[in-house]
């Protein structure tokens, strides 16, 4: 199992103005089949991707925010969100939707996937990866 690499998907764009956010999520879902050690980072405007209560009916594009809640089924269980990016945008963790996974190693206990980290911690997380993919 030594060929498992650490992949970080870095999300810095809001959800609907460009295709970046949706493309990132699709690549994550496809890439999950390769059974690598995958984490997602949300910073700058990327934190807007995770806000609760999104409704795209009026803009005619798909609301893909519910799909983040399926990531646990794909064994993607680490979503790092940068606290400074939330603060700068007047958001708190309570403005984000709840995303959980069931921990196979802990009797399938439901645990939160979102981990709010500081900018300094985010920098360390980025520096700890084998591959960083940016969106």
């Amino acid at each position: 199992m030594s060929d498992i690499k650490k992949f970080l998907y870095v999300n810095r764009k809001p959800p609907y103005g460009t295709i970046y956010a949706l493309e990132s999520l699709e690549v994550v879902l496809i890439g999950a089949a390769f059974e690598q050690d995958v984490s997602l980072a949300f910073l700058d405007d990327g934190v807007f991707q995770l806000t609760r209560g999104q409704n795209t009916d009026a803009i005619g594009v798909k609301n893909f925010s519910p799909t983040f809640r399926a990531l646990g089924d794909y064994e993607v269980t680490k979503l790092y969100v940068e606290r400074e990016s939330l603060d700068e945008r007047g958001l708190t963790e309570g403005d984000l939707q709840e995303i959980t996974y069931e921990d196979e190693d802990d009797d399938w206990e439901e645990k939160p996937s979102i981990r709010v980290v500081s900018r300094a911690e985010m920098a360390e997380i980025m520096a700890d990866q084998d591959v960083v993919l940016s969106f």
Binding site: R12, L43, D44, R119, A123, A127
Partner: peptide, 15 residues
């Protein structure tokens, strides 16, 4: 936009 600023804020010494 703030991309360079964000990048500089996430660099570690030696980068």
């Amino acid at each position: 936009n703030a991309t360079l600023s964000s990048c500089l804020g996430h660099c570690l010494p030696g980068d």
